[in-house]
């Protein structure tokens, strides 16, 4: 990357004036949001606020009708497809844990590793020591070492969530988009996940969507509340949760 500042912005992710509508329904409405390098941001908001659609836009699954979406200050994400965006270094964990159920935990991680993803590269692939060490390390981090040869489909819901986070780690992207990581987890697991995300945040930029306010509080990061496709409030958890409108549309009294 060019060190000279030819960038439009120094933000890692930069969304400005983004609109998307599906058959007249405005899913995203003049959404503007920036994520600084190294930042972790929590996104909250009621169902239908556009959280997942926003992630769809960033990862190229949905094309915005208008607006700017920049990655690393220079790259226009609206012109790229999912594969290219993933190659650039934006990883995503889905709301519903999506792992490759018929393959082993270890193979799931192997598939996620950010090595040669070409047809040729995978056909003539032979594992390297470095690769298996990385996988071992991730397995340890997500506490699935003992389950490495189990099929991913046989894991518990919480374990699948972790495996998906592990896949993000193996992918080692610059930005992690994490959609509802603690849904269906026990309190202990939730706590561990918060710790894990904080750990990952040391050298990755993260955007987390979550409904669990205890979890968001535990993360202790800047919070953005979305409502009807645009930003309703932004600030620390205390600021946002005392905001009148946020209480009204989301948290409830």
């Amino acid at each position: 990357m060019n060190v000279m500042d030819t960038r439009a912005t120094s933000a890692m992710l930069y969304l400005d004036g983004v609109h998307v509508s599906f058959d007249g329904f405005h899913a995203i409405n003049n959404l503007s949001l920036t994520l600084a390098p190294g930042e972790m941001r929590a996104i909250i908001g009621p169902n239908g606020a556009g959280k997942t659609t926003m992630m769809d836009i960033i990862t190229g699954k949905t094309k915005p009708d208008e607006g700017t979406v920049l990655f690393d200050g220079t790259v226009d994400l609206t012109r790229l497809d999912e594969t290219r965006i993933a190659e650039l270094g934006i990883g995503r964990k889905f709301q519903k844990p999506t792992v490759f159920e018929s393959q082993t935990v270890q193979d799931n991680l192997l598939l996620a590793l950010n090595v040669d993803h070409s047809v040729r590269g995978t056909l003539f692939w032979r594992g390297s020591k470095a690769e298996s060490e990385r996988i071992d390390k991730v397995l340890e981090t997500i506490r699935l070492t003992d389950a490495r040869n189990r099929l991913a489909g046989s894991l518990s819901h919480g374990q699948k969530q972790w495996l998906e986070i592990g896949m993000l780690l193996a992918q080692d992207p610059k930005v992690l988009l994490v959609d509802e990581p603690v849904a269906g987890m026990t309190d202990v697991e939730t706590h561990l996940t918060a710790e894990l995300l904080k750990e990952i945040n040391r050298n990755h930029t993260i955007m987390v969507v979550e409904h669990d306010m205890t979890f968001v509080r535990e993360l202790g990061v800047k919070v953005t509340c979305l409502h009807e496709g645009s930003v309703l409030a932004e600030g620390s958890i205390d600021q946002v949760s005392s905001n009148e409108r946020v209480v009204e549309v989301y948290l409830g009294r």
């Binding site: 995503r92 490759f100 018929s102 993803h117 692939w125």
Partner: peptide, 23 residues
Amino acid sequence: SKLGKVLIAVRDAESRTRFLGYR
């Protein structure tokens, strides 16, 4: 081969495979 694992990944969760950076 690893290609086979990618194919199965495509079969089971095509869009997930895309988000991992596979064409």
